[in-house]
Amino acid sequence: MFCSNPILIMNSDDPLPSSKACCSSTLGPALGLLTIRIWLGLRALATGIEKFAGSKASEAAVLIDGKPNGYGLTESASEKVYGLSHYHGIPEGLRSAFKAEPLLPGFSLDIYDKVLGPALIILGITVLLGILPRLSLFAMGLLYTSLTFGLILLKQDAGVAWLAIHIILIAMALIYSDRDKCVLLGRKW
């Protein structure tokens, strides 16, 4: 990753030994932007991965004196697992509510359901690593806006407010993106 060290990129012709001033003026915004990107990236990545999470129930024979009992008494255990078979883009509760919304055609819901998880993972990675950071942030903003739209239809005000915080962070990151120094690929984009 190319991470522009603010000290190294100072103009060597600078008449003043102002490395300290320069550092203080660029290091803070750079780290601030990095913090926002890490937050947004991890947030999207973790959310996307969780959409592949499920639980695996298992029954184990109860041990009596250290040996499996002969009566068939069992203890249930539930284990969290990840896998493609557990994928659920839109949570079931929301899905049924969305289906009842005339402004959301059923086919679009199916597409959205399939795309949401992978999109969150991909955008999480690109924002986190700084791959096409502006486009990635913009795409993430659109994704969260689309989620917000659905929640507005369902009158989920708390969810709308929560997503609005994400949008504000994304907007801040985009506005100050020219100060972003940690970019892996596509600095202009």
């Binding site: 029954e59 008494l73 069992t74 203890e75 249930s76």
Partner: peptide
């Protein structure tokens, strides 16, 4: 009284 449970159930 103290309360206890069976060690397992029927699945």
């Amino acid at each position: 009284p103290e309360t206890y449970e069976l060690p397992g159930g029927l699945s």
